[in-house]
Design a protein around this nucleic acid. Structure first.
Lengths: 368, 368
DNA sequence: TTGAAAGCGATACCAA
DNA sequence: TTGGTATCGCTTTCAA
């Protein structure tokens, strides 16, 4: 900027004015300065600017994993709102590790981000207290902050969505419904379990712990869980899966079982086949049906009804009934809350809950 | 830092030493300083640090869309490498808009990012010249830079992958193969078209423009394209889809057609049905088959064989044969190239090409 | 082992 | 409308 000032024969401050489009500069002077800028290929150093102004025009986003479609949808929405507000976004994936969440958050704070959007992995946010004291604005998304930290929060109606999904299965005659969800350390998983229990209670059905399995959605764990459920003396006739990754993993398991056991009777296409190479006694022959639309996807669920929490790509094609939340709406809302705070909005911490929506596609509408 | 120094009764510089773990500090002093730091909740201001040191310990990543699983996989890998190198990542989505790509890149430069990883939307990178002169390091990923800009580049073997996929269909007896890919403005789409043509030429088959459709992968466009192809007097017996989004969109279309036309003969399960509510004359009755594994998914492709470029979630379950590239390997490689440059590695710009892999799952192994 | 002073590149305030 | 100067918070250099 010094060089530009010298080249244009003006003072440093005048260059600054031109660069920042500040009023009160003679157009002729401005033009001369602009020419010097272009000639020298000058670009403002935003680090210095940041240091002086105290704000960085950037925000930090801490999520679990950008590669998870749920979070990448959320990220994209945050990025869009940020750009509309002339801010950039630092993104970090915590991988459900509270220590890494903390490291990321503190590193972003050290970078003087103006604000943070956090999907917390941990439940203790005491480490944020000094930052809040220093004026940090933060919004929690998808999961609430730990006790004692009352920042703006936007959540999905996890319990309500789960209750709706499970009630839907019950309405179709299911009495024994398996529940698969993420680890109980995760807020959303616990909430969805609560919804499951509420739906059972509302229908006067007993809560049977042997039908519930919570843990990370890796394929092998899910396989073991599903096989355990199907091997029960009184196996479930339906499953409720508590997040997108678990649903997808479950589909793979059920598909493999269905493939091993090709026995079915199908009234829609009048075919019939009783060979079964599957030694799994609990797969109920004769229970598979095509949907009214001629879809075959439902024949791959090993005779089980299925409702999942979270929509996912091709769920429509596979005919999977799901309870949809809206990740991009979650990101959009969180970002807008943050920018409202950044523009000086005061008032107590808000807690918003976004609705979920049951989308019927066939897999949840089969009877036991 | 001044406050800490005062509180600990030492000089500013000593605090700096403690904060940065520099050697040559009396342990007792260090402890006193640390206590003051903890008491005051002090955190280093990285803007000032950046200003002084000239490096920001952050890199910029410009992609098309974080919400696309291909790019979110790439992003995650970049983020991981960056974190291993103690750097943070600014991410921006250009949405295939060259102007936005440029704005993002220049904004990241103004933030003094140490380096950039760019998936270019545009083909003119002249705007980077002043930045390169100022010492910027940049790596291009997935697509090369425009002419005259020779930065490190890492690509997938697009033409080779496409050639392999198309040759695979030809080997199974297909002679008329539809080609759907992204807009010809996009490097990868053009390369994949080249592979398609090479495979045809190698088999002595004619190139028929009426079988080729390039454009954005939105559902309605793809629907129109597929319907046009199937309505040809001599319709294709197989499709090659040139990216993940197009493949998924195509699956939806074919599934809808299959659902309307429930006519099929299936030797594997011995069912048979000739009703057809589909007025689409070109769907070939009798052509659908189960795979040897008892899968039904292939019955939903309206009798067409299909190979897609890019793997995607549940492609395994749906039995879709694909040519896989490895987005996270692409991100990893790009990031490693960048950090090699940042640590002073000189030499001419590299151009790496990562191999692709054909994964057979059934949809590409049916005969006409 | 510790400290004092200079300066990174911009902006803010006040003066001309 | 324009310019001078202090200053943001840290690291670097050199001296004690």
């Amino acid at each position: 900027m010094n060089d530009v000032a010298a080249a244009a024969g003006v003072a440093l401050k005048t260059v600054s004015r031109v660069v920042n489009n500040e009023p009160g500069v003679n157009p002729a002077t401005a033009e001369r300065v602009q020419a010097a800028i272009d000639r020298l290929g000058y670009r403002r150093n935003d680090s210095a600017r940041t240091l002086r102004r105290g704000r960085t025009a950037s925000i930090g986003l801490v999520i679990e994993d950008v590669a998870d479609p749920f979070y990448s949808g959320l990220s994209r929405a945050v990025e869009d709102v940020a750009l509309r507000n002339d801010h950039f976004v630092f993104t970090g994936s915590s991988g459900e590790d509270p220590a890494r969440e903390r490291d990321l958050v503190l590193a972003f704070c050290a970078r003087q981000v103006d604000g943070l959007i956090i999907v917390p992995a941990g439940t203790d946010h005491g480490y944020l207290a000094p930052e809040f004291d220093a004026g940090l604005k933060a919004v929690f998304a998808d999961r609430p902050p730990g006790a004692g930290c009352r920042a703006d929060t936007v959540l999905s109606d996890n319990a309500g969505g789960s209750r709706t999904g499970v009630a839907h299965l019950i309405a179709h005659g299911h009495r024994r419904i398996g529940f698969l969800a993420d680890s109980p350390a995760i807020f959303t998983a616990v909430e969805r379990l609560r919804g499951y229990r509420e739906a059972l209670a509302a229908a006067g059905l007993p809560y049977d712990e042997s039908l519930v399995a919570m843990g990370p959605p890796d394929q092998e764990r899910v396989r073991a869980v599903v096989e355990r459920l199907l091997a029960l003396p009184d196996p479930p006739t339906a499953l409720f899966t508590g997040n997108g990754r678990t649903t997808v993993a479950t589909l793979r398991v059920l598909d493999a079982i269905s493939a091993r056991c090709s026995a079915y009777h199908c009234s829609a296409c009048r075919c019939s086949n009783d060979r079964c190479s599957n030694d799994h006694g609990s797969v109920r022959h004769g229970a598979e049906r095509h949907g009214g639309t001629g879809r075959h996807g439902q024949g791959r669920l090993a005779g089980l009804a299925l409702v999942g929490f979270d929509d996912f790509e091709l769920a429509d094609l596979l005919g999977i009934t799901i309870v949809a939340q809206d990740p991009s709406r979650l990101g959009l809302t969180a970002a807008e809350m943050l920018f409202r705070r950044l523009s000086g909005h005061a008032g107590p911490g808000l807690r918003l809950e976004l609705p979920t929506r049951l989308i019927e596609r066939g897999s949840g509408e089969t009877v036991p």
